[in-house]
Write a protein that binds this DNA or RNA. Structure first.
Length: 484
RNA sequence: GGCCCCUUCGUCUAGUGGUUAGGACAUCAGGUUUUCAUCCUGACAACAGGAGUUCGAUUCUCCUAGGGGUCACCA
């Protein structure tokens, strides 16, 4: 029996996600339980969205979580490099290998044609998908066009007959898909970078990954992966699709509705043991009635047949309770370490706002006063805070609604963008800009005495700003301050 | 909408044909504590619905309903 090897393959396109830690935990526990290896691979094949800063944060926060890997971009290993942007030749070769084998083909369709195609399919109530326009181009002609420098992608040539099935070890059953429903997926993009599907399969094979534990959001693209393994003539790993973490409204967990960034959890004083423990309770249970256990115990007893199939709601109330349980047990030294670590994480987390915070702090106890709003999942608004000059209830509600809408439409990024959005909305509604700014301030930070608005908005990001503007709108509906 | 996945207390879950359906968080009610918190005791509270298989279904099968995921040159 060959060595068990699992991996976590985060994409460095944003803040480190709680879901990544959850999937990593399972991969680590599974591999370590079998005496195998856990690998970290960076999937930075999206040139536009990937950033080095994000990669660093992901590595740092997973380490902080105590989820350490045996092989990865920072520690190396015999199957490196572990960053996909450093393996481009391999993907390109692999893609052309499939073209040679007649399992894939170059496609020269441009974005306009694809957009038009999709629009037409939607209009005719058909399922959107590639129509195979470039399938029949002769290989010689294709080569010529590529040689001349015409932009192309490589698509998987899907045999639309029959079905593709794979075994899912969590559900303990086969899942099958009609091949007619599988699209001729792009494998190699115009920029020469692979798509997830290609890179993932090529790397999992090259890195000898034996078991793929990933979120169930991937189930529907697994047939593509299976087809790729078959096209290459490789043995596919065993698939285990874990249930997705969810928001309270049962949708897939998202920063739009919940804090999801590991850095937020770290800065907010959640300790790693409680986070590990709580995450291990999501979609998983230990035998007996045990709920409090360590990562070591989890690894020792990890049993994939105890993974459940239904997707859990991420329950902050229970997490908070777990965290307090762990804190209660701290010795003085442990608490000192915890406190120092939490402070370090907090300062790192708020570094963009730190200068503004420091200007306002008189003593240590002031820190929370100025930064607390960053960690409240739902701001506890006070009615009187909404007593704003030249603004009545109706105007405030219109303003908040328009603000939230404009925020979603124009997706501001920088502080100045946010200022513009607020100024624009105020002028559109012919309301005083100052009132609009104050209303935004209260909606986002709860108080009139608070950090610089635009900088805070940039820090929070459009999603969270929109969330809070909506929440403020809901609040003032029934809690508008009484006139004196 | 097509396809796929899922369905036990409000929430996280145990349970693999016969249980008073168990535990945890939350909630509520008591108790200990000079306050608060902790801690203790108790209460509330679930097998989505309908067929079938079976002597017997929470457990197996099918259907319905509901929820979710996915349909990109993002992962």
């Amino acid at each position: 029996m060959s060595e068990v090897r699992t991996r976590i393959a985060p994409s460095p396109t944003g803040a480190p996600h709680i879901g990544t830690a959850y999937i990593a935990l399972h991969n680590l526990a599974f591999a370590k339980n079998k005496g195998g290896k856990f690998i970290l691979r960076i999937e930075d094949t999206d040139q536009v969205r990937s950033t080095k800063a994000s990669e660093e944060q992901i590595l740092d926060s997973l380490k902080w979580m105590g989820l350490e890997w045996d092989e990865g971009p920072d520690v190396g290993g015999e199957f490196g490099p572990y960053r996909q942007s450093e393996r481009l030749d391999l993907y390109k070769e692999s893609a052309f290998e499939l073209v040679e084998k007649g399992k894939a083909y170059p496609c020269f369709c441009n974005k306009e044609r694809l957009d038009a195609l999709r629009a037409e399919q939607m209009a005719n109530k058909q399922n959107p998908g590639y129509d195979g326009f470039c399938r029949d181009i002769k290989p010689e002609e294709a080569k010529e066009r590529m040689a001349k420098g015409e932009a192309y992608v490589i698509r998987l040539l899907v045999n639309k007959e029959g079905e593709t099935k794979f075994f899912d070890a969590v559900r303990n059953q086969d899942i099958s898909f009609n091949n007619a429903e599988v699209d001729d997926q792009v494998l190699l993009k115009t920029d020469g970078f692979p798509t997830y599907h290609l890179a993932n399969v090529v790397d999992d094979h090259a890195m000898k990954i034996t078991h793929v534990l990933r979120g169930e959001e991937w189930i529907s693209s697994t047939p593509k992966h299976v087809m790729l393994y078959e096209a290459f003539g490789w043995k596919a790993p065993e698939f285990m699709h874990l249930p997705l973490l969810r928001n309270t409204d049962k949708s897939k967990i998202s920063k739009r509705k919940n804090p999801t960034s590991l850095t937020w959890f770290m800065a907010n004083g959640y300790c790693k043991a409680s986070l590990q423990n709580f995450l291990a309770l999501m979609g998983y249970s230990m035998s007996g009635d045990r709920e409090i256990f360590s990562l070591t115990e989890l690894i020792k007893e990890y049993d994939p047949s105890r993974i459940s199939t239904s997707a859990p709601i991420f329950d902050f109330t229970k997490l908070d309770r777990f965290n307090s349980q762990y804190i209660m047990e701290f010795s003085q030294d442990e608490f000192a370490d915890y406190q120092a670590e939490a402070d370090r994480c907090l300062i790192e987390y708020i570094k963009a706002l730190l200068p503004h915070v420091l200007q306002r702090i008189k003593s240590r106890s002031d820190l929370d006063y100025w930064t607390g709003f960053l960690f409240e999942r739902e701001l506890a608004y006070e009615s009187n805070s909404f007593r704003i000059k030249k603004l009545n209830q109706e105007q405030a509600q219109k303003l908040l609604k328009a603000l939230a809408k404009e925020m979603g439409r124009s997706r501001p990024v920088k502080a100045d963008d946010y200022k513009e959005v607020i100024a624009k909305v105020a002028s559109d509604l012919e309301l005083p800009a100052a009132s609009a700014f104050m209303l935004s301030r209260i909606s986002l930070m709860k108080r009139k005495d608070s950090l610089p608005l635009a900088e805070v908005m940039e820090f929070l990001g459009a999603d969270i700003c929109t969330k809070r503007l909506k929440e403020a709108g809901a609040f003032i509906k029934g809690n508008w301050p009484q006139s004196k």
